[in-house]
């Protein structure tokens, strides 16, 4: 059986359209994931009751399959609120919440890796707990968490292919559609793999550049 390069090329515009959605979905989710994760990571090591809420959230999101979370939001919630949730919104919610839990653990580890002398020095200058976090701890922690955040970005980009199950036409879903028309799975899945590879390698390069910028590699 011959390999149909022409099919790969012909499919590219559609695949790239899907890839664009994959990138958008992942980027927005990582953005919200970082916001949620920073809050949850800080709550996780706080002294008040919020630590238990944060722990429960993190355990749930990391201990259940993303696929189940997607179904829960897309199929499970609408009957409760008596209205449908658009696929894009459901995907965004699931990916952001899922990513937030992983980012929370990254942020927690980053904060805890900062020498406690830093906190003491800030407090001895009369800084509030919040100012100590904002000006002293978080800026240093963020430098350290750039590499693991990059990994999380890449992991989420790959995991985002799961949202194809709720008919969101990202990269994987596009390929399924094309295969349904052409019956050429090998060419298409290989093309999808290559597009994913290009995206993940680009992200990893980007993260390396950011790391250098921030002087995390010393």
């Amino acid at each position: 059986m011959d390999f149909r390069w022409d099919l790969v090329w012909q499919s590219m515009p559609l695949l790239l359209e899907g890839a664009w959605l994959t990138i958008r979905l992942t980027s927005v989710s990582v953005f919200f994931g970082i916001l949620i994760g920073t809050a949850a990571g800080m709550a996780r090591i706080a002294k008040g009751p919020q630590r238990y809420a944060a722990a429960a959230y993190i355990d749930f999101m990391r201990g259940t399959p993303l696929l189940v979370q997607i179904f829960l939001i897309y199929y499970g919630i609408p009957p409760l609120i008596d209205r449908p949730i658009p696929a894009y919104l459901a995907a965004l919610l699931a990916l952001s919440l899922n990513s937030g839990a992983y980012v929370a653990e990254i942020v927690r580890a980053g904060i805890q890796s900062i020498d406690k002398g830093q906190r003491e020095a800030a407090q001895s200058l009369g800084l509030s707990t919040w100012d100590t976090m904002r000006f002293v701890i978080l800026p240093q922690a963020f430098r350290r968490i750039v590499p693991p955040l990059g990994n999380e970005f890449i992991a989420l980009l790959k995991d985002s292919s799961l949202v194809s199950v709720i008919a969101l036409e990202e990269l994987v879903r596009k390929a399924q559609i094309i295969i349904g028309r052409t019956f050429r799975p090998f060419e298409l899945w290989l093309a999808v793999a290559i597009v994913f590879l290009i995206m993940t390698i680009s992200i990893s390069r980007l993260v390396n550049a950011v790391e250098k910028r921030l002087k995390v590699v010393e």
Partner: peptide
């Protein structure tokens, strides 16, 4: 307070280390 191991803020210039307290507190 002055510490045995200094505990300067490594991500800030000397100037910003010295002005952080007065600016924020």
């Amino acid at each position: 307070m002055v510490f045995q191991r200094f505990h300067l803020f490594p991500h800030m210039k000397v100037m910003d280390n010295v002005t952080l307290g007065p600016l924020r507190s």
